[in-house]
Design a binder for these strands. Structure first.
Lengths: 122, 122
DNA sequence: TAGAGTAAGTTACAAAAAGTAACCGGTATG
DNA sequence: CATACCGGTTACTTTTTGTAACTTACTCTA
């Protein structure tokens, strides 16, 4: 894992870090998880599921996730316009990894919350 | 995974989401990964490994990660003061999960970078 | 037939988070 | 005698987010 980093002469930028920071961003992760649950979602549906996200940030994240190859966007020339978002095969393989982490979080978040509370009282 | 969310009546806040956003934050993840590699690290060493982080943000993240139970801080009353950071058992169990994700990222980041480039040219 | 609602965003502005650089007091190093 | 280390903190600037209004063209409701 750290083998590729020469930590005595740290590089200006680590590409893995860059890629990971996009994919594990809170909103990006939620978008990908919901698209893993529902194969196809339109903008406004997605916005309802990814509770609390703004149009602006949803729009930004969708563009970045599309550019990075996790999701695909299909626009239909109807009136009103219909746009469908779905995971690519690559995105599908990522969501499986992400789900493992999320499951760990679901199991362990009570411990974190308990810890947080205890820490606040001391 | 989604069973706990009633997406027709979305909750004001999802605790899992809150916990996960702290733990999967870019800087937090890097701190935890380096502490998984070196059992004990002092502030300035950590700062060198977590390349690019500022004192301010490192200090903030260490406090939050300590409060959430991932790391522990030991200060020795020497002169100059010595402070050692290390993973708790809980943090250790988390870093194992995080490493799996990181390994996936290492394997797959070339695909993402290739995709990104292709997308930029169209 | 006026009014509201839907669709997928964009835009201008405000608020929050992150980055930058200087500083602390005491000690060891050159 | 000046410099660097130790583990941070503080004031200030820049970047990122969030908020709310707006867009175009059609459909549904009263």
């Amino acid at each position: 894992m750290f083998g590729h980093i020469d930590y005595k002469n740290p590089p200006e930028l680590c590409p893995v870090r860059d890629v990971m920071s996009v994919a594990s961003d809170q909103w990006s992760a939620l978008i990908i998880l919901w698209l893993g649950y529902f194969p196809v979602l339109r903008f406004n549906k997605l916005k309802k599921f990814v509770y609390g996200i703004s149009n602006k940030v949803l729009s930004q994240r969708l563009k970045v996730l599309e550019a990075d190859g996790y999701i695909q966007r299909k626009a239909y020339a109807e009136v009103p316009i219909r746009v469908e978002y779905s995971l690519t095969d690559f995105g599908q393989s990522y969501v499986e990894k992400l789900l493992e982490l999320t499951e760990w979080m679901q199991t362990n978040s009570p411990k974190v919350l308990a810890n947080r509370e205890k820490y606040g009282l001391i």
